[in-house]
Design a protein around this nucleic acid. Structure first.
Length: 284
DNA sequence: ATGGCATATCCTATATGA
């Protein structure tokens, strides 16, 4: 099973890229963030014609998350992060797909910091840590993925110098990330590529894409039960190279999950060879 | 300290992103 996360930066503007990417890479599950559209503006019909069925939670102008599954409909578990009924941002949706729990999140950016937006980011992160604690040790597979808006270490950015005051690199943001991982989650990309520079986001300024001046902020975390079944991970950087691209690239994991005893399997037992493609390298 | 670019909406401007 291939599970991917993709911050589309506007589902309406990015629909052609999304469809091209789904057709070419055929992820079994695609988590989307930054729909920037109301529920009724979600292009469900086009996505269904591409062979995917989805759940989404939109919002006017900003935020918005979705979970798509190839050939089946995700079973909704929740559509908000517990812990603050007054939080009306569409930043979290959780569903089961073929026996795997998929949590799709869009963590607040937090800029400028310090300030109320950074406070909201840390408060949201605290709620995520609390909820993730209920998922890390369960006896079934869980993927916690999305745009975390955190650069975990200075290894995860081309050059931290001009970003030192940014919310994505603050010690407070990184401390939350470390506390989350300390629960027992596996950071799939870093686990498979402990040394390589791997980026998932390149901003639109100063030819950062052309110079591969990127950040790693889109992450896929695996719970204890699932981590042994990780066989590959990567970033579909070709999507970022398209004209009018999102500033994020799709990021994915390949999982060789044993067949669930009661779940109906989709494709008669054939197994795809795990694609362990190398991520884009800083030198390349 | 600012702006560079992109997307969205209350669109000859403004808010947000990261």
């Amino acid at each position: 099973m291939k599970v991917a996360t993709f911050n589309v930066n506007g589902i309406k503007s990015r629909l052609p890229h999304l469809l091209e990417w789904l057709a070419k890479e055929q992820p079994d599950v695609a988590c989307l963030q930054e729909l920037k559209a109301l529920d009724e503006g979600f292009p469900a019909h086009e996505i269904e014609q591409a062979g995917y069925s989805g759940l989404w939670r939109g919002q006017r102008s900003w935020n918005g998350v979705a979970i798509l599954a190839r050939g089946m409909k995700p079973v909704e578990i929740r559509r908000e992060l517990p812990g603050d009924p007054s939080d009306d941002h569409s930043r979290y949706i959780e569903a089961a797909v073929d026996g795997v729990v998929i949590a799709c999140l869009y963590l607040p950016n937090g800029n400028p910091q310090p300030g109320p937006k950074f406070d909201y980011k840390l408060a949201w992160f605290e709620r995520l840590i609390e909820h993730a604690a209920t998922l890390v040790d369960v006896p079934h597979p869980v993927v916690l993925c999305g745009d975390f808006n955190v650069v975990p270490t200075d290894q995860d950015i081309y050059n931290p110098r001009s970003w030192l005051k940014d919310a994505l690199l603050q010690p407070g943001s990184r401390a939350c990330w470390q506390r989350l991982l300390a629960q027992g989650w596996t950071d799939a990309i870093r686990h498979l590529y402990p040394e390589a520079p791997v980026y998932t986001f390149w901003d639109y300024f100063r030819k950062h894409w052309e110079r591969n001046a990127g950040l790693r902020i889109d992450h896929l975390l695996l719970n204890r039960h699932l981590a042994p079944w990780l066989v590959g991970a990567g970033v579909d950087t070709w999507v970022r190279a398209l004209p009018k691209a999102s500033d994020h690239a799709p990021t994915w994991v390949e999982l060789k999950v044993p067949a669930a005893p009661r779940a109906a399997r989709r494709s008669g037992g054939t197994t795809r060879a795990p694609a362990r493609r190398a991520p884009r390298s800083a030198s390349g």
